[in-house]
Amino acid sequence: MSSAVRKFAVMLLGAVARNSQRESQCWGNAMLREVDFIDSDWASLWWALGGTTAVLKHSLAITARSWVRKQIDHRGDWTLKNGGKKVARLASGVAISAGLLAVSIVGVARLLSAVISARTFEHLHWLGWLPILVIPEGIFAIAAFALWRKRRDIARGIVLGAVVLAVHVIVHMTTHK
């Protein structure tokens, strides 16, 4: 006849085996079956306690592994989807800035040449910076500011275009003097 200690050992290990992860249940049941072959009641209790720890550890490890895998999968998905969109928006911002620069160079240069005579233009050669740098950078700043709240990635692309243009002008000035 089973003693209370042995009954408790069986009950404990049985409950843990039933409620653990499916992969751990087999091991829990394996340890549970061995209890019947342990002579001493107290030894069976120690066996059950050790088995409980082993099953819980195994079960926890499986849970933790699957949780980490799920997180990585989710994050991977998130990065791919949103990362692609972000890059596309940023690229469109850069394209907008490049378009604005082209319009500014062609449009303002034509306007200036129509309004100011060639002789005057020679005296005011700093006016050449207007369509190339001053006007585009001004438009970039206004556009980036206007889009920053609602279209931040596009605004960032415009800022990037502005920075590239400014750097290009600085490099040009320092190397062509």
Partner: peptide
């Protein structure tokens, strides 16, 4: 081999033996 027999042969408790078997 049975788990309990391995435990007796090696002197390892179930909490040590079974994680190794796993």
């Amino acid at each position: 081999k049975y788990g309990y027999d391995i435990s007796r042969d090696t002197g390892l408790k179930s909490g040590t033996l079974y994680p190794i078997l796993m």
